[in-house]
Simulated assay, not measured.
Amino acid sequence: MSSRLLLWIAAAVIGFILLCAAGAGVLTGGAADTGLACTPELAASAPASSSPAPTPSVRVSVTPAVDGRYPAIGRWDATQVANAATIIAVGQRLNVPQRGLVVALATAMQESNLHNLDHGDRDSLGLFQQRPSQGWGSRAQVTDPQYAATAFYRRLLKVDGWQAMRVTQAAQAVQRSGLPTAYAKWEADATMLVTRLAGTAGVPQPCTAVAIGGQGWVKPVDAPIVSGFRTGQRPGHDGVDLGAARGTRIVAASAGTVSRVRCNVGAGSCDVDGHPGLGGCGWYVDITHPAGVITRYCHMLTRPLVREGQTVVAGQQLGVVGSSGNSSGPHLHFEVHRNGDAGSTGAIAPQDWMREHGAPLG
């Protein structure tokens, strides 16, 4: 047995142990759990706030760390993350769809940078810079994060067709800002915080249960196939499109090493929605597995959470679903390649491979 194969086996064994850690079971068969699975690393943290982080009194699925404080996540310090958790928790209590949580966070990011401000333009105050003179409530009310979030959601839910709007359009329909497109730039960060906080106890968890097939493979997202492999209409389509919602977690289909992390577009940025004809996979990840198998994950919303050369286990989060690159809407484009060939000639039908390896797609 070669030393390279031994290394792969060791990685798989370690992955199994990690997935079973802290009381998290590994499930055989069934649908993949959408909870955060074995994500050991976060983006570089911003400096922690010098003031104590507020603890939301609304408790749904968002709770602080053991010591009562929230961790910094990415550019957002503990105080900002705690305010985001309050906004998310209020939305969950009101049964607001996840898209609404993203709209609310993007709005608060633009209006206050997730700080509960006691000042603003004219009489604007609080996380959402709501104005008492415009009927949002008293000064004390709009500077109460729970009240402010509730008021925002109630107005959002009254907007006809808000779920079909872009984030910036939905936010503007509520806020009526003088900068109507300013909310767009916060969508990626808002989605990231909702993904990290909603339903994951407020702290990015190292491990949770994930459905891994008997051969060590798991579906990258739990979603239907909306476009097949090399169909008559799309003979050059080297993978399948899985119709998952924006912000859905994408996980590694099996243990391996991240061989590529790229922004791939014909022109412009991967941090905005693409469109048909633009060309490119947007933000994408390639993972190299044993025996020359390669999997590819395209059109992510933001820069992937992994780096080139990093070893990952089956079920480990790679990023979230988006619509970057050559894309008509949010989905995951998923490919499987053989013989170490990441090009078109190495592509095989992903649905056949995954079914044969105990993790059928769709």
Results as ranks from 00 to 15, higher is better:
residue 358 G to K: 13
residue 21 A to P: 02
residue 153 Y to W: 13
residue 151 A to H: 01
residue 260 R to V: 12
residue 138 S to V: 04
residue 24 A to W: 05
residue 130 Q to I: 04
residue 209 A to W: 06
residue 153 Y to L: 10
residue 273 D to K: 08
residue 362 G to W: 04
residue 214 G to D: 10
residue 265 V to K: 00
residue 257 T to L: 12
residue 297 Y to W: 09
residue 261 V to S: 02
residue 39 T to A: 15
residue 304 P to G: 06
residue 228 G to L: 08
residue 123 D to K: 08
residue 49 S to D: 15
residue 59 R to W: 11
residue 99 R to W: 06
residue 268 G to T: 12
residue 230 R to C: 03
residue 287 I to M: 14
residue 301 L to T: 00
residue 29 G to N: 07
residue 120 G to L: 05
residue 154 R to G: 02
residue 63 T to F: 15
residue 356 E to L: 11
residue 49 S to A: 15
residue 125 L to F: 10
residue 330 P to I: 01
residue 254 S to V: 01
residue 309 G to F: 13
residue 147 Y to I: 06
residue 48 A to G: 11
residue 334 F to V: 00
residue 161 G to M: 11
residue 328 S to K: 09
residue 46 A to G: 06
residue 207 C to L: 12
residue 48 A to E: 12
residue 37 A to Q: 14
residue 126 G to W: 01
residue 286 D to R: 15
residue 206 P to L: 08
residue 188 A to Q: 07
residue 40 P to I: 14
residue 6 L to P: 01
residue 321 V to D: 00
residue 86 T to S: 14
residue 273 D to R: 09
residue 272 V to A: 10
residue 284 Y to A: 11
residue 74 G to P: 14
residue 198 A to E: 10
residue 349 A to G: 03
residue 91 G to P: 08
residue 312 V to H: 12
residue 125 L to H: 04
residue 218 V to Y: 01
residue 98 Q to N: 02
residue 188 A to F: 01
residue 180 P to D: 13
residue 297 Y to R: 00
residue 354 M to N: 03
residue 9 I to K: 12
residue 248 T to I: 00
residue 48 A to Y: 07
residue 329 G to D: 12
residue 146 Q to Y: 02
residue 355 R to T: 14
residue 24 A to S: 15
residue 78 A to S: 12
residue 60 V to E: 11
residue 318 L to K: 01
residue 101 L to N: 01
residue 334 F to E: 00
residue 197 L to A: 03
residue 298 C to S: 14
residue 102 V to I: 15
residue 338 R to Y: 07
residue 315 G to H: 08
residue 18 L to S: 02
residue 79 T to Y: 13
residue 133 S to F: 06
